[in-house]
Design a protein around this nucleic acid. Sequence first.
DNA 1: CACGAGACCTGTTCGC
DNA 2: TGCGAACAGGTCTCGT
Length: 274
Amino acid sequence: MPELPEVETIARILQKGTPNQPAIIGRHILGVELLWERSLVEPSPDEFRRRLLSQKIEKTSRRGKFLVFTLSSDLLLFHLRMSGDLMVRSAGSLPQVHDRLLLELEGGLQLAFNDARKFGRIWLVDEADRVVGQLGPEPLDESFTGDDLYTRLQRTHRQLKPLLLDQVFLAGLGNIYVDEALNLACLHPLTPANCLSKRQAEDLLKSIRTVLRDGISRNGASIDWVYRGGDFQNYFRVYQRTGNPCPKCGTPIARIVVGQRGTHYCPHCQPASY
DNA sequence: CACGAGACCTGTTCGC
DNA sequence: TGCGAACAGGTCTCGT
């Protein structure tokens, strides 16, 4: 589930809580159970346990697709990759299948990192830049403009689909939201970046922001067995809708493979014009 | 620099 | 029904 809107949803839930789930902010970490050591990038498992104990969770936020926990004296970062999820449970809950890290929190709560495919990663660092320093701009940051995107697009002839998936070019987009944004912007996924006009670049940024904001407002998308309660999957225009009608023109959605990723687009609204 | 293939993993769905 | 193939919201590394 984890692209920008899904990670943002998780960060907000942890920060603010929900009607039936308390926030975890302000609570000390009383216990650390690392169930799959390879999820941890740094430091060593021993140091990880030692340093986490008794730190307080001050804040939860997001950078790109990374979840960032600001602790009393360190930063705890998660990347959910394909199947990772973070959830709050009651203290003493039995570990579930695929749990990789359990943090016992003050106030009878447990924070669980669950990750079926084991692709997710965890860092505990005193400085975030070593982990997220290479990330590109935040697409929802208002200081990032259509002009800025145009300038960056002009610098390369890479195809739009793989380029927008590149977190160094732009942070936070994944397979779903790139396909959705390109459809909204009426751009073919294989278009070379430096073929876009300034107007098209501005439209593309607007489309990216629209799909991201729609995703966030619906609490993200929930697919398969990874479920968080979001329902943006019911509003996909093209993603995983191969053969179904394009919402704008009714043409059947096509599927191609680009950079080993399934890619969905409307052959009529997004013609190859390059 | 840009691209493609392979690796890392487990689970579900598809096709015969 | 069964079984292998294909596919899945991501990213890294290596070879060309």
